[in-house]
Simulated assay, not measured.
Amino acid sequence: MTDHSIRGKVALIAGGAKNLGGLIARDLAQQGAAAVAIHYNSDASRADAEKTVAAIRDAGARAVALQGDLTTAGGVERLFADTVAAVGRPDIAINTVGKVLKKPITDISEAEYDEMAAVNAKAAFFFLKEAGRHVNDNGKIVTLVTSLLGAFTPFYASYAGTKAPVEHFTRAAAKEFGARGISVTAVGPGPMDTPFFYPAEGEDAVAYHKTAAALSPFSRTGLTDIQDVVPFIRHLVSDGWWITGQTILINGGYTTK
């Protein structure tokens, strides 16, 4: 029988220095992962990555922090190659990388569109490609998207629009990698109570998002709490291995499809 537990496995977390990615990385170590590779993008995240690495080691797992720009195919190839060299072939690969922009379509420049597409779609595509080449048989691959994929809303065309292709990438990869026992999923949390959320929103919008979910009165802030997302990711990369090819929105009733 195939072992789908996290214990003894090797994980790679893109965008794993802080916020949701960092919490997922720490949780996998606490669940018994043998090693966790933490990717971070820039020097501004280096200190957070080092703190996460220290926490992983404190939990008894090996850990390494790897810096890289994932908006090029070469950058993603290097991340996986460096991961294999440092901690071994991953059993679990999770991509939490993303960039948000809240702006009317008529105000979005070509440069802004290109950057959003590079971070949210291109990086996700090549992460899936390299995961398919490097993840061990019976592995798990997860990409973080957004619950806005199920919303009818203005101002997020470049954000939700460049996350939307990941649904199609996920379905194709699930079919292509399934013969090796690899599951591939996309998870779309609602607006999360992290520093990633607030810079894009005005006070009125923040107030709306805090009351939009059906379960908002029972949330600590009214927003999606990353503490509530982590157990779901944990399930997908362990006992929930048979869930594949799906985009799953988890948001306390903020939106659905």
Rank of each mutant, 00 (worst) to 15 (best):
I6A: 11
G8N: 11
A11H: 03
A14L: 09
G15W: 03
G15L: 06
G15P: 10
G16D: 07
K18R: 15
N19Y: 01
L20P: 01
A29E: 12
A33E: 07
A33Q: 09
A34N: 02
A35N: 03
V36H: 01
I38P: 05
I38R: 00
N41C: 09
D43P: 08
D43F: 11
A44F: 04
D48W: 00
A55F: 00
D58E: 15
R62N: 13
A65L: 09
D69I: 10
R78T: 14
A81T: 14
D82T: 11
T83S: 10
A86W: 06
V87Q: 08
N95P: 11
T96H: 06
G98Y: 07
V100P: 00
I105C: 09
T106W: 04
I108W: 02
S109W: 02
E112H: 01
E112V: 05
D114S: 10
E115Q: 13
M116L: 15
M116S: 01
A117P: 08
K129C: 06
A131I: 11
G132L: 13
H134F: 12
G139W: 03
G139A: 07
K140Y: 01
T143Y: 03
T143P: 01
T146D: 10
L148I: 07
F152D: 15
H168Y: 09
F169G: 03
T170F: 09
A173V: 02
A174E: 02
G178M: 04
D193C: 08
Y198G: 01
A200S: 15
A200R: 00
E201L: 15
D204S: 12
A205S: 14
A205V: 14
K210M: 12
T211D: 12
A213C: 08
L215Q: 07
P217C: 09
S219I: 00
S219M: 12
T221H: 08
T221G: 02
L223Y: 15
L223E: 04
D228M: 06
V229M: 15
H235W: 15
L236V: 05
G240C: 08
I243P: 01
I243N: 02
T255L: 09
K257Q: 15
